[in-house]
Simulated assay, not measured.
Amino acid sequence: MKKLLPPVLFLLAIIVLIAARYLWPQSNLIPPPWHWLGLLLIVAGLVVGIPAANRFHRIGTNIRTFNEPGQLVTEGAFRYTRNPMYLGFSLMLLGLAIVFPVLTSFIVVIAFVVITDRWYIRFEEAAMERKFGDAYREYKSRVRRWL
């Protein structure tokens, strides 16, 4: 299961979310034109997630979930959330669920957030504590996991 990296789960969630909208007839939970407000969340997710990923690439630290962490990053969006890339993915999925506002879409978003929180983030946090010890615990005590 370690081969299912977060971006792959994110893409699978998008596929299921969009497919569910068209394959299983459901009533829209958010009527037009209000469903287009989901685009704002998609943009917000991009604004949060992409710079965080770029920061990892810029400083040359590991971005892959199941590899050993390279550096403790606490600047930029990491001052406000320990997981801006996951937050970005989640915001984009929530925005997409609002654009395609059927019950199944929101279930996909919830499933993504739960899997991310309980599997990826817990794995990463344990690795970060092992590698960075007190520095990571101090960071964790002052910066929230999500927001």
Score class of each variant (00 low, 15 high):
F106S: 05
F89Y: 12
E125W: 00
V73W: 01
T116L: 10
A126W: 03
G95E: 06
V109E: 02
Y80N: 03
I42M: 15
T74F: 04
T116Q: 11
Y120G: 06
A52W: 01
V108D: 03
S27H: 13
A97Y: 06
R82C: 03
L91D: 02
L103G: 12
L37I: 05
E124L: 05
F89P: 01
G38L: 15
L29F: 08
N67I: 08
Y120M: 06
W119C: 14
G70A: 08
E124T: 14
F132K: 04
I107V: 10
S90Y: 08
A127M: 13
I121S: 04
I30C: 12
V102R: 07
F89A: 07
M92V: 11
N67M: 12
D117S: 15
E125Q: 05
A44M: 13
E75A: 10
T104P: 11
I63K: 00
R118V: 13
F123W: 09
S105A: 07
T81I: 02
L72E: 07
E125G: 06
L46E: 11
R82D: 03
Q71I: 11
L96P: 04
L103A: 10
A111Y: 00
T61A: 09
G70H: 04
P69I: 11
W36K: 12
T61R: 03
V43L: 14
L46H: 10
T65L: 00
R130C: 14
Y80I: 01
